[in-house]
């Protein structure tokens, strides 16, 4: 995916009207949905800057609410995402914050809560043409785009996690394209993000989980 495809030019196939404010919003919320990987009882969206200013006219709210229900950019159900969220019993709330400045003008925070009270927040940016990046998970700064198969491992910031994970990946023959580490503070919570061109088979996630420093694993398949 490291080249400009004909389908990056003639595409994406998308529900209008805006690749950044509609398709990009869908993509951010869809990634949030995939990362959360559990039923959603409640969702709070906070839209900033340009998203907050022109989001209503671009259907950004419908796009976000569609994305967290698992709809893709070309899914016509996006138009009815409010009704479908109601039917699915998802409680939703939008905050249109046009005062706070963010690093990128098209920014949204998404807070997801499951029926059993599990909470996850992410911050995403829509950077143009439907392309996006996730820049925070649970208030820790990260960067990934979802263009590659992505393995996100939440762990304790102590020695041995990277060696353990790369060992498992290497045993299963997964080639690592990119790998980055983030943490809140020394000895606190860390995120290890591994991106690969190939599918990362989920059957060996159990092996990664064997290490007691690993708290949680999220996987996005392309």
């Amino acid at each position: 995916m490291n080249y400009i495809s004909v389908f990056d030019v003639i595409g994406p196939n998308m529900i209008g009207p805006s690749s950044s404010h509609t398709a990009g919003a869908v993509n951010i919320a869809l990634l949030a949905h995939q990362l959360f990987a559990r039923p959603i009882a409640k969702v709070d969206f906070t839209l900033y800057e340009s998203f907050a200013q022109t989001g209503r006219g671009h259907g950004t709210d419908k796009a976000l609410l569609g994305g967290i229900q698992g709809f893709g950019t070309d899914d016509v159900r996006i138009r009815d995402s409010y009704a479908l969220a109601d039917a699915a019993g998802i409680e939703y709330h939008f905050t249109w914050d046009d005062k706070t400045r963010t690093a990128h003008p098209n920014t949204v925070d998404i807070r997801l809560e499951s029926p059993d009270g599990k909470v996850q927040t992410i911050r995403g940016e829509s950077v143009g043409g439907g392309k996006i990046r996730i820049v925070q998970i649970n208030d820790i700064d990260v960067v990934f785009t979802g263009v590659y198969s992505t393995l996100i491992i939440k762990h304790a910031d102590r020695p041995g996690v990277v060696a353990h994970v790369t060992n498992v990946l290497s045993r299963h023959g997964v080639n690592i394209a990119f790998m980055r580490l983030y943490r809140d503070y020394k000895g606190g919570t860390g995120y290890l993000i591994v991106e690969s061109d190939e599918n990362i088979p989920d059957y060996f996630l159990e092996e990664i989980r064997e290490n007691e420093l690993v708290h949680e694993i999220m996987l996005i398949q392309i």
Binding site: G11, M14, G16, S18, G59, D74
Partner: peptide
């Protein structure tokens, strides 16, 4: 028109210019 009414289009190269091609 389809684009502005939240219909399905192909960006080419963008949504705002999706009618030309």
């Amino acid at each position: 028109e389809v684009n502005a009414a939240m219909g399905l289009i192909v960006a080419a190269p963008t949504a705002g210019s999706s009618g030309v091609l």
